Amino acid sequence: MPEQVLELPTAWGRLAGSLLLPEGAGPWPAVLLIAGSGPTDRDGNTPLLPAPLDNLKRLAQGLAARGIASLRYDKRGVGGSICPGLSEKALRFEHLVDDAGLAARWLAQHERVGRVSLVGHSEGALIAALAAGAADAQAVVSIAGAGCRASTLMRRQIEGNLPPDLAAPAVEALSSLEAGQPVEDVPDALFLLFRPSVQPYLISWFRHDPAEVLSELEVPVLLVHGAADPQVGPEHALALHAARPDARLKIVEGMDHLLSLKGDIPAGTHVVAGEVAAWLQGLDVRLAA
């Protein structure tokens, strides 16, 4: 199953990605794979971690083996997605939503592809839900997606991990950003988290409540979450399910946030690919009936 490397022109530069089709003529159900937060590339790798994960690449391969085509891409300004003049200060969360919509619409026009669903991991789950309407998506799959605003999740993590003398100003900064107000005096110890150049992005990100967004979607939803996720615990999947009671919920025992099953990423992505493929193929059958 050779991959096709793509470069999609955009108003800001180019969006680079990899198209992976199953064996045969198709047309195939297809998914757009959307990576999580930070400088994460199409394969799920980031320079913030000491070694490559390739979790999204492995997920794409697992889906192709089960008859599901996929397109995964480098986020704007990451890897091959060249964005001349891009500055952190100018980036907004909605830009990432726009990019997902563009990629999904391109995928939907491919001659060997049928309906397209959006599959997002972590932060990408919210992007998928927000982009679904403009992309005319068949369905949305949330993998390890948060069940609350990013600011609420950050507040919980800060209060549970930082000493009180740092937690207090951090929580105060979060409250200001939630209200759309930049923070001028950031303590040196918190500068990396709340540097002025990233604050506009955080403000744009904090506006969106994932549970509320999912509740308003008019397409089927699948929720996949690891029971051993230390960053975004399985209670988040339960919160999303409460907002969308008709969604399919799958909690994977032993799987963490990186889709590693008891330390084994190939095993974790194998389980996730099987769950996503079976659900999408069953969805196609139901819609055709």
Rank of each mutant, 00 (worst) to 15 (best):
L259Y: 07
V5T: 14
R156D: 10
P50Q: 12
V5G: 06
K89H: 11
W279D: 01
V116N: 09
C148N: 07
A228P: 10
A150T: 09
F206M: 13
D284K: 00
Y201K: 01
R92P: 13
A211E: 09
W28S: 02
L91W: 06
G67A: 10
P169T: 01
I143P: 12
A35P: 10
H110R: 09
D284F: 03
E184H: 07
S197A: 15
Q281C: 03
L130I: 04
L32W: 04
L71D: 00
D165S: 12
V171I: 13
M154Y: 09
A170S: 10
L6I: 11
L240H: 06
E94D: 15
P22F: 01
N45G: 10
P47F: 15
D256N: 14
L177N: 12
L86F: 08
P84W: 15
L21F: 04
P47Y: 15
H95V: 05
L130V: 03
N161K: 12
Q157N: 13
P169D: 02
V221W: 01
F206W: 08
G17A: 06
L177C: 13
I82G: 05
S175V: 00
I82V: 14
E275F: 05
G120V: 06
T152K: 04
F93V: 05
G13H: 09
L32F: 07
G263A: 08
I265K: 08
Y201N: 02
W12V: 06
C148G: 09
D185E: 15
L153Y: 08
T10V: 07
H241V: 04
Q157C: 10
L20D: 03
L126W: 02
G254C: 08
R115F: 01
R195D: 09
V78R: 11
D43N: 13
I265D: 10
L202M: 14
A11Y: 04
S151F: 09
D43F: 05
I34E: 14
V183E: 09
G77D: 05
R244C: 05
P200K: 04
P169L: 01
G233L: 07
S215R: 03
A64C: 06
P163V: 15
R92L: 15
A277S: 13
D256A: 08
A129G: 13
P196I: 06
I68N: 02
G85D: 13
E275R: 04
A108L: 02
R58W: 15
E253P: 06
W12G: 02
P245L: 02
L20I: 03
L102C: 03
G274H: 06
A170D: 14
I251P: 00
R72T: 04
E159Q: 09
A60G: 14
W106I: 00
A289D: 15
H236P: 09
A65K: 11
G120W: 00
A60M: 11
L56S: 05
L49R: 14
I34S: 11
H236N: 14
G147Y: 15
Q231F: 04
R58P: 11
D99H: 08
L192V: 11
V171S: 14
P29F: 00
L190M: 12
L280I: 01
G160Q: 11
R42G: 03
A247S: 13
L53A: 11
L214A: 12
M1E: 13
V97H: 02
Y201A: 01
A243I: 01
